[in-house]
Every structure is written in C-alpha cells, then in structure tokens.
Design a protein around this nucleic acid. Structure first.
Length: 824
RNA sequence: GCGGAAGUGGCGGAAUUGGUAGACGCGCUAGACUUAGGAUCUAGUCCCGCAAUCGGGGUGGGGGUUCGAGUCCCCCCUUUCGCACCA
C-alpha cells in the first residue's frame, strides 16, 4: 500500500501558515497571555540536526496545544548572533562575520519552517544588529552611572586559543567553556558588572522558583556560594599592619597556630626583605602566579608553601604565630588569607604536618585523650572547648560561633561577615564580533561615557580579519580615533566588546518591543507580558545564561523598568539526544564533531516532518537523555500512514453499532490521557495513548461494532489531539473531512466524564497478595455484594479451600485481596 | 570527598503516585496477502517448568514497613550530572 504524500501536504500547510502569519500575536491584548520562550539559538554555519530539533519540536507542540486550549501564546524567535565562530569563519574563509551570520540565519529559518514550527516572526530579534545591541550599550551606560559597571585591574582568566578573557562562569574545570583550552591568569584592566551586589537577592529568589528544576537551583546556589562567618584581624607588628582573614569558624581562633596568605596577597611584598631566602620566595611567588589554576588548585595537586619569617599576633591568645604563603589559599576568595587551624581543618592539618607546624586543639572530643601532635585527621568540632578562657565548656552549635563573634566585636578584632564564591561578571572581550563598549578614553577627562544620543556605537564593517594577535577593532584607526564627548580633544575609543551573554540576558524583554527604536522595551507591554511563563532550553545554561538573566532582570527592576525580579516562572530543560558514534564506539550526545548526527533533511524528504516530530516526541520523557534509533523512526511513519488509511476506511462503518459506548469510552479516555500528559509535557505517553486509540478504532471498524457517526466523531477527536505532534497531516485530513477552520483555531476537546462510566468493572482478586482471578462485577456493587460475587468464582474458592479468611481488602473498581490463614 | 538524578524484557520506555509489572513503539518469530513496498494485515514475544488457559520466579543487591512495594524507609552496588583546597 502506498504511503501518504507527505511532501505535498507539508509544503501546502507550511505555506498556508506562513501566508496567514499564523503565530503573529497582538501584544496590546494580554488577555489569556502565555509567554513561552525557547532559548534563542546561535546561528552556526552547520545545519541543525535532529538532536537540535527536539527542543524546537517540543516547543511548537506546546505552542499548538496551548493555543487550542484557549491561551494566547507568544512564541517568538531570534538569534544569539554575536560570537566567536563568526569571526573564526572570517579568518578561515575570508567571509565577513556579518554576512556569514545573516546567511546562516536564513538557512536556520528555512529549517524551522520545514519542521512546521510556528514563531511570531514579526518580533524577530537579532542581537548582532545595531538596533538590538544599541540597547546593550544603553544598559551599560545606565549601569556605569550607577556604579554597577566598573573597570578594574585584576588577575583574569585568559583563553590563549580564543584570544580573549573569560568570566568565571565560562571557565569549566580550568578550561575554556567553548574550546576546552586550558585557561591562564593574566593581570589586565577589564570591565566588570557588579553581580556580587545582587548575590543575596539572587540566592533568595531561588526559593520562590517552584517551577524550576531542583538541580538548576542547586547549581546556582552552589555557584553563588554564600558562606556565613567572621572577619578577624591579626596584627603584624613588624610592618605595623593588620591581616584580616575570613573564617566560618571563629570559635577555633584559639587553635590558629599559623597564618597563610595566597601568593598574590598584596602584603606579601612588604613582608619580604632582600635576603637570598626572600629572593627565592619571590621567584616562587612569580612561578605560582604563572601556574594555570588547574595545576595549582586541581584535585590531588600537592600543597606547596614558603615561610615568610614574619609573625602575626593571634588576637585570642596573644601568641606570635608564623606567616606562611601557600598555594592552597586562593587569592580571590574571602580576603585571600586565612588563619590556619590545623586541629580542626583537614587542609591546614595536611599543610602543618608537611611543614612541621604546630597543632593545637580547641575542641576536645569526649572521653578520648587526643594528642594534637599526632592526629592524622582533623577533629571536626566534636566535643568541648578547653583552654579558651571564658569559652571553656562550650560545645559546637548552641550559638557558640555567635558568642565568639560577639567577643571579637567587643574586643575590636573582628566582625560578622558573609562571603560569596560568586565574583563580579567580567564582560570585556578582546574580540571584534560583539557589542562595542560605549566608552572613550581621554587624556584629560579620563574614562568618558558616550552620550545616549550618539548610540549606537556601531561596529565598523571594514576591518581586517587576519587571525593575528589582538582585536581587529584595535587596529582600525577609523574606529579607535574619536573626539572626547566632554572636551572635544582627540581621544581613544574602547575596543573591547561585550560578552555575548550580555545579549541573552534581556532579549526576552526585547521581543516585547522588537521594532521600537525609541527605547529598550516598552514598560507597559513588559508589565502585561512578563514574566515568561515557560522557558525551555538546555541544561548547559543552568548557571551562565540563567544567572545573568536573573541578574539583569533585577537591575532593570531597580531601574524601575520592569516590575518582576524573576524573569522566568517555569523552566524546562529538555534532555539530549544521543546516538552511537562510530568514531568513539560509544553512545554519545549527537554532535557534528562526534560524527553521529542525523540530518532532518533526508528524514523529512523520505518520511516527512510529521514523522520526525512524532518520533522525536515519542522517544522518551522530554527531560531525559534518549537514544536515537534509526529503525524506530519508521514506527512513527507507520503510525501516521495508519491514520491516513483509517480515514479512508471510516465509510466501512455500519449505520448502527452494537458497541458504540465502548468506542466512546475509549475516545474520552484518550482525551483525558492526552490532555493530562501534554499538561506535564509527557508527549511520549500522549502519543502512546493516541496509538492505542487508533488501535481501538481500527478494531471497531474491523468488527463493525461501532456506528459511522461514533467512528467519525472518534476520528475527528483524534485529529485534534494529534495536531500538536503532527500538525501538517492533521490539518490536511481535517480539511478533507470537510472542516473549514484550521486546527490551530479549533478548540481542544474536553472529555465527558459520563462517557467513562461503565456498568461493570473487572476486579483483580488476590489471595494473600497473589493474583488468582479476575471477576467482573457491577460497578456500583458494595463490599458485601462484591464478596459474594467473588467467592462464587471456582478459581477463587479453590485457593481458599481449607483456609480461613482473616480479612478482605476491597479497593472499589480495582481489586479484592483475601488475607487468609490456616484454619486453626 | 560533597550534593543531585537514575537503575524495569533483546532495545527505547509505560505503570492513573501504595493496588493486574512490562502499556505504546522498535526488533524478533509464525502465518495471510500482494499491483514487490522501507509494503500491509493477523497472531505471538519478561524468565523457568518440553506444552498449557496451569504453576513458580521476576523491576541493580540485601533488609524492613504493609493485606499488598517498581513505587515508602534503612544499608550496599553501579551509572550519570554538577561542585570540588571556597577557609
């Protein structure tokens, strides 16, 4: 039997939807609004593969479902189109990044269309275009005014391969998040955004996000890394300075037997003299500075250190303790220096043992005589405090830490302090293809902001892409040479561009005012449409993009531009699609570099986009990682072909049917299941329900047990339920069945509970929990009646022979369980 | 090491949240049919007991709660994803 003509049908409906601008929505009406958002893609030169498709197909199915259910969903799309690959393509193939990018966008758009995906293209946003990135610049200037954007010299992450600095979030296990090259530290002056000011709010906000996956929230909490403790001051008499440390355990200060500074600590130089030994220490410090952090801090890396020879005074005991430098103290956490309490901290203990430093117990375990000089493992605050004056006898907990903080405050050598792991967001990039930072350096005026009316600062088109060191912008005299907006003298333009994560930190607001040249976005529209009701994207942005977007949303909130602080109410992370890779011999994430991709182009050519859609959604729970099976795709095609054949066979149904109620029950059961499943994004089980429905309908036709009327009705309902998954075919069949409205405008069916009711139900009968029989009983039978009916079964009575029924469990509509024991 | 998620047939996965384990699909087996198509249709397909409509076992392993556990609790194993000298 011939397969249906998916090519003609799909082209026909894609063109119709496009022509009628099916997904365009009027934002001035926010009744029943539902803002759904797919993470906007980077338009890479590679065609999308079926692994990418999962995300978009899922979103489109959701869009169509919501729409049929009476929502007015906004489903926009745009392009996260600044970034390195464009520049690399320029270097490798001498195409201009802009032309390359805009060309790729056209290709991707066509692919979306071929998948049957409906976006509201009237609100398209392209981040590499001046009408978008001028608002990045505008935002930068507002933040600059507020002190939220600032420039500082600091040790920053530098990727030697990408030739640019990176934010902390973009360094994964010491490597560049993009290209996996090992990152090195460089001392540079860079632009930062003050996300640390928002650490507490970003943390607290997570508690309200009940619609976010727990693991994403956990990852963000860990990233922010809030830590409560105290700052304590240690005097260094030799240079008349104070060394301040951060500790979460000020209650162990009596056990601080030495101090450790990070090699980069600003006081190091002052502690050193001219001796040969001190010169050696300087060499060592220099070596540390130049050691990649992975080698310095990585797992299993040995601790190294040097004794400065200087001493500090322990403020609790008044004793002199040596000051060391060591690799294990991080320069950019806390104060970059610690009090070492080897008795109660494993790292300090390891270092103390290695260097022969003394160890002193503060907490003494109960009923155990512990010798501080020989312990191999730290005592983690077990037992009772001794030799600490007024604190003797205290135990861990019970506000002990607070008592020490109060004491330190009274004595003036310390104070309560909260520290975060989070660092300010380094947004400078030494690359061409990004938003120019709207700043000018003037010899007399210093750092000068570009006035708003001179925005956008456009990227010059005509630059050289040589692949040589440095940003092409800095070699463009035309771009660099400006007059100072304040004094009119000659000045230099900032040539760093912004991290592309700036673009994606607010694009969801730009969709709401995509064509408005007068402002970043319209407040009233944002008021009506924010927050995003459902955000869908990959887990890889759990920290990066999602943290930045939450940050910028708060900044805009504080500017009075939007009232929400949390931009995304619900977050859904679809899982990856994997496939066997010849290259590695393993099942891995589908990707071009692994050579295990499947192109949708051929698949669509052979079996149609609806087949790909149905198969992709059927593969498994959308949040799980699933393996693509080339053979199993055909099952989806087979299913759709059966739907087509079913339509052709409907005429075989008789005028009256003896079992109409059975088919109706199945139909309404299917409505109930599919609706419930789609509400939970369980497209896989929704499709299974539809397959079962088709099987049931097929059976009814085969048996001629249901009437034409009921079969028609059942089939039409199936088309509506299937539409989100297989939109082209269902539209076509719907039209062929004589309906004039597009399924997009047809209501989702409701199930009628009265159709689900049956006169009789099958009960499972168990004896001591073992399945022994199934018995059909009237649906409304009470426990006594059921007992009689069940006991009348031969099979049941066989199992009860010679036994005494101790108890009968009756779960109406489900089962009966006899608890029996030997007659005694 | 810390934290999260998961472990069910040959395979992808279901199981109305404590009530028939294996829905649906892939694959496989047998048959029917054919205008040979990537056909289609019908039946079967967790394991063991030669076969069964009968019996036993079965959701990573071990214990427990319960009339009843894939589901809840405890211990262990494995996989996987974050974080990882953060003081």
């Amino acid at each position: 039997m011939a397969n249906y003509d998916h090519k003609t049908i799909e082209a026909k409906w894609q063109n119709r939807w496009e022509k009628r601008r099916a997904a365009e929505i009027d934002l001035s009406n926010s009744r029943n609004k539902y803002y759904m958002l797919m993470m906007f893609p980077y338009p890479s030169g590679d065609r999308l593969h079926v692994g990418h498709g999962r995300n978009y197909i899922l979103g489109d199915a959701l869009y169509r479902f919501l729409r049929m259910r009476g929502k007015r969903p906004l489903n926009p799309m745009g392009w996260d189109s600044f970034g390195l690959p464009a520049e690399n393509a320029a270097i490798a193939r001498s195409v201009h990044p802009r032309d390359w990018t805009l060309g790729n966008i056209l290709v991707m758009k066509e692919q979306f269309k071929r998948w049957g995906i409906l976006y509201d293209w009237s609100k398209e946003v392209t981040s590499c275009k001046p009408d978008y990135y001028r608002w990045n610049q505008w935002l930068f200037l507002r933040m600059f005014e507020q002190g939220l954007a600032y420039k500082k010299r600091a040790a920053v992450n530098w990727c030697p391969s990408c030739q640019t600095v990176l934010a902390n979030e973009q360094v994964v296990e010491g490597r560049c998040e993009r290209c996996r090259t090992e990152v090195v530290q460089k001392d540079l002056e860079q632009w930062f955004w003050k996300i640390t000011d928002f650490a507490d709010r970003l943390l607290a906000g997570l508690d309200e996000l009940s619609g976010w996956p727990e693991r994403v929230k956990t990852m963000q909490r860990n990233w922010i890394g809030r830590s409560e403790g105290a700052e304590l001051d240690f005097r260094v008499p030799a240079i008349d300075e104070t060394l301040t440390v951060f500790t979460t355990r000020p209650d162990t200060v009596h056990g601080a037997t030495f101090m450790v500074l990070a090699p980069e600590h600003p006081l190091v130089e002052r502690l050193l003299g001219d001796s040969e030994r001190d010169q050696e220490i300087r060499t060592w410090v220099e070596g540390m500075r130049n050691t990649p952090r992975l080698e310095r801090e990585g797992e299993g890396v040995a601790k190294t250190g040097r004794d400065t020879g200087a001493v500090a005074i322990n403020p609790a005991t008044g004793e002199e303790i040596p000051i060391w430098l060591a690799s294990y103290v991080l320069p950019d956490y806390g104060t970059g220096s610690i009090m070492a309490v080897p008795a109660h901290d494993s790292r300090d203990l390891a270092f103390a043992r290695q260097e022969g430093l003394s160890v002193r117990l503060v907490y003494h375990p109960d009923g155990e005589d512990v010798d501080a000089e020989t312990i191999e493992e730290p005592i983690l605050h077990k037992g009772v405090i001794r030799n600490a004056g007024p604190f003797d006898g205290l135990r861990d907990g019970e506000g002990t830490v607070e008592k020490f903080i109060a004491w330190a405050e009274e004595e003036g050598f310390g104070r309560a302090k909260v520290t975060y792991r989070l660092r300010d967001w380094l947004i400078s990039r030494q690359r061409y293809w990004g938003t120019p930072i709207p700043i000018v350096y003037c010899d007399s005026c210093g750092i000068v902001a570009i006035p708003d009316d001179q925005l956008p600062v456009e990227l010059p088109y005509d630059v050289e892409f040589t692949g040589k060191q440095g940003n092409p912008l800095s070699r463009s005299d035309e771009f660099v040479a400006v007059t100072c907006p304040e004094c009119g003298a000659g000045a230099r333009r900032e040539t760093d561009t912004m991290d592309t994560f700036v673009d994606s930190s607010w694009y969801f607001l730009r969709y709401l005012s995509a064509n408005d040249d007068s402002r970043m976005f319209k407040r009233e529209t944002a008021e009506a449409w924010m927050p995003v009701d459902q955000y869908i994207g990959g887990i890889e942005h759990a920290i990066l993009h999602l943290l930045y977007a939450r940050f910028i949303c708060r900044v805009l909130h504080d500017f009075g531009m939007v009232s929400v602080e949390e931009p995304f109410t619900n977050l859904f992370n679809q899982g990856m699609i994997t496939r066997y890779s010849e290259a590695s011999g393993r099942v891995e994430k589908m990707s071009k570099s692994r050579g295990n991709t499947v192109s949708p182009d051929k698949l669509i050519e052979d079996m149609g986009a609806d087949t790909e859609r149905v198969y992709t959604l059927f593969l498994g729970p959308p949040e799980d990682e699933v393996e693509w099976n080339d053979d199993a795709v055909y099952g989806a095609y087979r299913f759709l072909n059966r739907v087509v054949r079913m339509q052709q066979r409907l005429a075989e149904a008789p005028a009256t049917g003896i079992a109409d109620e059975d088919l109706e029950r199945l139909t309404h059961k299917t409505i109930e299941r599919v609706t419930r499943d789609l509400e939970k994004f369980k497209f896989n089980t929704a499709i299974a329900a539809l397959m079962e429905h088709l099987n049931g309908l097929s059976r009814a036709l085969e048996d001629k047990s249901a009437s034409r009327l009921v079969c028609d009705e059942s089939f039409d309902i199936m088309l509506r339920l299937l539409h989100p998954m297989a939109p082209h075919l269902t539209e076509e069949l719907w039209e062929q069945r004589g309906h004039s409205d597009s399924l997009l405008d047809v209501d989702w069916p409701d199930h009628d509970p009265s159709k689900l009711v049956t006169d009789e139900v099958e009960l499972v009968v168990q004896v001591n929990g073992k399945l022994r029989d199934r018995v059909v009983v009237p649906a409304d039978a009470n426990e006594t009646r059921v007992r009689d009916l069940v006991l009348a079964s031969d099979r049941v009575s066989r199992y009860l022979e010679g036994l005494e029924i101790a108890r009968m469990i009756f779960v109406p509509g489900r089962l009966v369980n006899f608890v029996v024991r030997k007659k005694g």
